[in-house]
Amino acid sequence: MPGILITDDTAFMRMTLKNILTKNGFDIAGEAADGNEAIEMYKSTRPDLVTMDITMPNLDGITAIKEIMKVDPSARIIVCSAMGQKALVIDALNAGARDFVVKPFQPDRIVDAVKKALTA
């Protein structure tokens, strides 16, 4: 079962997301710490869904979304970032993200977004 690929540059946020998702019955396909790792891990694990941070070293999340969409146009990606500026939300959605969850978030908000994206 491929599960969810978590992408965030802070180990703490990866741990938090992993805890929320596993408690709600989701499998974790892997954890990526920047956009480059996310693209590589997407190719190798083919997850059902990706959570994507925006501000990350080496390669940012919006560029990573575009690259993943080139690899798999049906990829399901939801953004999970503190940068809730309208312009960046629009950039992310245009790049191919299905949803945008602004940090700080309630666990329910993430679980709902994941469920919604997986059933769409």
């Binding site: 946020m13 501000t55 940068m83 940090k103």
Partner: peptide, 28 residues
């Protein structure tokens, strides 16, 4: 890592308000 994430979220709160006030796109 947790402190960094807290700092990230708090500074983003500030930056987002600043962006909303000015209409600028601010990328940390």
């Amino acid at each position: 890592s947790a402190v960094m994430e807290v700092g990230n979220i708090v500074t983003a709160g500030y930056i987002n308000a600043f962006a909303g006030l000015t209409g600028f796109k601010l990328i940390p």
